[in-house]
Amino acid sequence: MPGSTTMIRTARLPLMTALAAGALSALLPCCSPDSGFNTVADYDVVATHFNPETDFGAFNAFALPDTVVHLRAPDGESGADLSRDYDSLIVATIRENIEAMGYRYVPEESLDLHMPDVFVLVSASLAEWATGSGDWWERWGWYPHWPGRWGPGWRTYYPYPINYFYRSGTVFIDMFDPQQTDPEAERIFLCWTASINGLMVDMPEGARSRIVKKIDQAFIQSPYLAGQ
């Protein structure tokens, strides 16, 4: 070794390093930046999920009840009533988008003669609640065109992750194949779901264009619905 300094034959970590380790560990929580959600609009989300085992290319015809069902929270709690002024616009916009993807609309009066490949249901939450499998019959049992074997106790089931907490006014669009059910468990498997968080809350001016834009987005980000 050159030079006159002395090599110290020990390798204990310096005390300063140990102290630094403690200090840095204490600072770690400070290393998480602010998420930057400042306005109500920052919480608007269009989320779509699909069952990867579904062959959307096999679907040709769809039915769409002309009603937006308003959902209460599982405990029955409900927030303010939502306006129904936009129900027809919401349903019409959804129909236009599905038809644009190559599906044929089956009108309600033809359902007894021609069972569609899929049903599309529209609902809106009246309260903040975490969605999950819902009591399907309580919400949609009134509809007269279901296959006869479904009844009270049947529930919808999402075969994909749905992990949001939804704001009041969130609009859900659910698609299901009436052939994909579990009669023993009384489950109806959804094959596609769109949730548009807070769509019907604090309706500003320009609400109609906002509704159309958000619903269009749900289909824009779901090109697989066209079987591609």
Partner: peptide
């Protein structure tokens, strides 16, 4: 230890789906 982050919008893939909206990625 390194923390990367970005805020923005756009459409992002998630498990079995996509989400669109203001988001914070880290």
């Amino acid at each position: 230890w390194s923390t990367f982050h970005e805020q923005g919008g756009g459409t992002w893939p998630v498990e079995d789906g996509h989400v669109t909206g203001h988001n914070f990625r880290r």
